[in-house]
Design a binder for these strands. Sequence first.
DNA 1: ACAGCTGTATTATGAATATAATACAGCTGT
DNA 2: ACAGCTGTATTATATTCATAATACAGCTGT
Lengths: 132, 132
Amino acid sequence: MISFEKFVPIDGSPIYLQIITYLKRGIAAGFILDGDEMPSRRVASALLGINPNTVQKSYRLLEEEGIVSSNQGAKSYVTINGDKIASIRSELLSAEANAATIAMKQMGVSKEEALMAISRAWDEPEKGKSNL
Amino acid sequence: MISFEKFVPIDGSPIYLQIITYLKRGIAAGFILDGDEMPSRRVASALLGINPNTVQKSYRLLEEEGIVSSNQGAKSYVTINGDKIASIRSELLSAEANAATIAMKQMGVSKEEALMAISRAWDEPEKGKSNL
DNA sequence: ACAGCTGTATTATGAATATAATACAGCTGT
DNA sequence: ACAGCTGTATTATATTCATAATACAGCTGT
């Protein structure tokens, strides 16, 4: 059962998208597995402190992506295979790297400086702590 | 005169915040300088293809941050000193590095893999191209 | 002086996000 | 069978973002 225990809300981004990202990163990290049971819309909304309709929106989009399987009256489950996991992971990673790269180039940072900034942030216990 | 020539709108983030980020990254990169003339709200809205009220919102927030100086009836100017430039640059850089680091840790990426992903994205001519 | 730029303010509308309150249909374990 | 979970759908309201139209006040160069 996925608990959303380590979900950390971030303002500025729609919650329903944050839920989708949380699931995908958990899948990439390997702690969300194929066949895992999703909490019901109502339970998840209570866990996250948000509205059931917002959870429903994220679940619906996750199902459209083939990551979650839902059936009327029954529980919902994570449905992913090895290829899907690999594609999610590589897509998330390259998207993140590209976004950071574009931003840093726009602010006039050299490649060396960029890599040093990442390395420094990675080793900072405060900031780099995993929020999952 | 700031032209917004290389401004690239991104969906998902409010335009008024993108304008602020564009200005700050330009300041960090050094191609937006103290004393530079801001286009009027009306001119900027035409350049960007957006509503004057949206431009006004970003200008107002930039003035509240002390980056832009506006006076009724007169033109608006960039007002920054060396310390401000340095603080903007370091703040943008660490914020970007921290965000990328947190995201990558959440998706179960090792530090080495993260640095490689950044390095690879940096050298890709397509994706890493500066949008400024 | 004054026309034509500035900045600033107000009101109205629409889309997206999120909440709230219901309602109904289908599975599931006892 | 049936109570109590599921998923699914609808309607209404509030906030934020963005647009649109307008208005007014102040600087500025000719």
